[in-house]
Design a protein around this nucleic acid. Sequence first.
DNA 1: TAACAGTAGTGAATGCCATTGACTAAGCTG
DNA 2: CAGCTTAGTCAATGGCATTCACTACTGTTA
Lengths: 235, 235
Amino acid sequence: MTTTRESVTQAGAASPRLHRGSLTKQTIVAAALGILDDHGNPGLTFARLGKELGAAPTAMYRHFPSRDEILLAVADELIGMSIDGYEPSESWMDSLRDLAYRAWHTFAAHPAAATQTFFRVTRGPNELRAVNAILEAIHRAGWTGTEAVFQYHVFSNLVLSTSGTHAARVAVRQESEANGNVEWNQEYYPAHPEDYPYVVAAREDFRTINLFEIYKGQVEAVLSQMARKAQLQIQ
Amino acid sequence: MTTTRESVTQAGAASPRLHRGSLTKQTIVAAALGILDDHGNPGLTFARLGKELGAAPTAMYRHFPSRDEILLAVADELIGMSIDGYEPSESWMDSLRDLAYRAWHTFAAHPAAATQTFFRVTRGPNELRAVNAILEAIHRAGWTGTEAVFQYHVFSNLVLSTSGTHAARVAVRQESEANGNVEWNQEYYPAHPEDYPYVVAAREDFRTINLFEIYKGQVEAVLSQMARKAQLQIQ
DNA sequence: TAACAGTAGTGAATGCCATTGACTAAGCTG
DNA sequence: CAGCTTAGTCAATGGCATTCACTACTGTTA
């Protein structure tokens, strides 16, 4: 028996060459996102990507020029997951709330991917959709021109920064747990308590914090300022 | 002249063994920060750290167990740079503004370092100082107990997230420039403009944006909500 | 002053990783 | 069916963090 050809299903055997259209940007991005979810950021290597897709480690280079470009594509995918299914509600405030919460939950569900991408400008189609949706709601709030763009940045930058930072913290915790580290609580125990009276007094309260509630507080602060200032303009 | 001892300033010669107390956490952190400033994140390697300090590449392992721990120490250093010289002003709002702007400017001045650290909990002494300073101002605003801690998180999380994200974007741009890439503007040019009317209409206005002004808008939104809610409580 | 202990600094592996360039063959074009 | 383009493969290459055994400095104790 020659070894020139082997069955695909043969266990553990060296795989035959992949067919021509087997790999696409889409499948690679999906695999990358899955790997990030399962193994965190250091887990995303060309070797693992190849194994996951049944391809040679370097096959991705036919579709992306570098690891960073794959990440950028994942970024746009994440934005797409956030707005898929979004419909503007009657109230512009509810529309923006919806968009804000969607970003939070998408990032929280894919912390490793979000960590590496939330601060990147993808220039992809989904980013455009999202920018357009936010601007649309802000126009309904009564803003136009430069000031609408200003409010757009205040809102979208808040949403991306805080949701992304939350994801980054979740990712750090997951990786530290993966490395066998025990859990750290959001607590502070100073060596010289007398120097930090407010920290000491608040120690108990630091435990009871719900991060999504804090996010909601930040979003409401921006939205209510947006509404208040728009009203002032109208008068 | 024997070569058992050589002048520190001797150019290019193989260095003699370093004296015993030459390396400290402090000097290593300072060198790491300098390297991050000059060469960006991928520039921070044990090799370069060694060269910078005139030590063997692995010498740092006597002071830090891993690269990540060095980064954590840099994080606390950055927080320290932010609050050094801070004095509470009479107005609690001005105090928080001051702290917010300090963080922004420190992060903006050290973008690579900030990028890797702003979302980390350092548990270092400077972090404690900062937490205490913020809580102190929030107490003067009229908040106590759990609600003070809630407001603390709303404020500090906003400041760290948005200042840190800004730093991350600056760092990305610097590294892309270092790689010879040309500048990218904050612009959007959709392939099918008719699908993104608001983006198209706003294209010109995207150019005129001052990021620090946006940050100020976000900080004011949170501060004014904090003030408003505190007043409601008092009544 | 002479051993000695502890440990800071060194230097040579090790193993993982992204990226490159040459090679192979699959499928289109004529 | 000959030839071309290019997706997929394979074997380097060079950089990196980390480990481990080694060396010698400094302070302690006799």
